[in-house]
Design a binder for these strands. Structure first.
Length: 257
DNA sequence: ATGACTGTGACGCACAGA
């Protein structure tokens, strides 16, 4: 089973790119982030015509997450990260597909740091850790994937020294990600490519893609039940070179059935 | 060190992104 994650940066503006990529790569499950569309403006029909059913949690202008499946039943479990009923951002949706819990997340950016946005990021991280721990305790296979807005190590940044004070790379952020992984999760890309420079995002500015000035911020965390089923993983980085493309590239894993 | 790009909502320009 092939599972992909893709921060589309606007699902309607990105629709031609999204459909082209879906058609070329036909993942079985797709987690989308940054829909930037209200609930009623999700392009359900175009995605259905491409062969995918979908559940989504939209929001006007910002955020928004979705899970798409191809020829697989999808059962929604929830569309909010537990722990803060006041949090109105659409940043989490969870479903069961093929017996696997799929958590699709869009972790807050957190800039500028320090400040209230950074505090929100760290609080969101705490809630994620809490929910992740309960998923592990349940003992079912789980994939937690999406845009984590974290470069976990220096290997994941083109110029680490420039990012030390950034919300995506500050010590508190990296520590939160490490705490999460240390619960018992496997970072799928790093398991297969422990020392390779791999990026999933390139800024629109200054020809970042052309210079390969990238970041690795979109991740797949696998619960222990799935660790042994990981067959392959990669980044469809060519998609970042397409016209009218997102600043993120799709990332994917392949699991044994 | 700075500013550069992009999508959305509204149809200016502000805001958020990373």
């Amino acid at each position: 089973m092939k599972i992909a994650t893709y921060n589309v940066n606007g699902v309607n503006g990105r629709l031609p790119v999204l459909l082209r990529w879906l058609n070329q790569t036909t993942p079985d499950v797709v987690c989308l982030q940054e829909l930037k569309a209200p609930q009623e403006k999700f392009p359900e029909q175009a995605i259905a015509d491409a062969g995918y059913q979908a559940i989504w949690h939209g929001q006007k202008s910002w955020n928004g997450v979705a899970i798409l499946t191809r020829n697989l039943q999808i059962k929604e479990i929830g569309r909010a990260l537990p722990g803060d009923p006041e949090d109105m951002h659409s940043r989490y949706i969870e479903a069961v597909v093929n017996g696997i819990h799929i958590g699709c997340l869009y972790l807050p950016n957190g800039n500028p740091a320090p400040g209230p946005k950074f505090d929100y990021k760290l609080q969101w991280f705490e809630r994620l850790k809490s929910h992740a721990a309960s998923l592990l305790a349940a003992g079912t296979p789980v994939v937690l994937t999406g845009d984590y807005n974290v470069m976990p190590t220096e290997l994941d940044v083109y110029k680490p020294e420039r990012w030390l004070d950034d919300a995506l790379f500050r010590p508190e952020t990296r520590a939160a990600f490490k705490d999460l992984v240390d619960q018992g999760w496997t970072d799928a890309i790093r398991k297969l490519y422990p020392s390779q420079k791999i990026y999933t995002f390139w800024d629109y500015f200054r020809d970042a893609y052309g210079r390969d000035a990238g970041l690795r911020i979109d991740h797949f965390l696998l619960s222990p039940q799935l660790d042994g089923r990981l067959l392959a993983a990669g980044v469809d980085r060519n998609v970042r070179g397409w016209e009218k493309t997102s600043d993120h590239a799709p990332v994917w894993i392949e699991l044994a059935d």
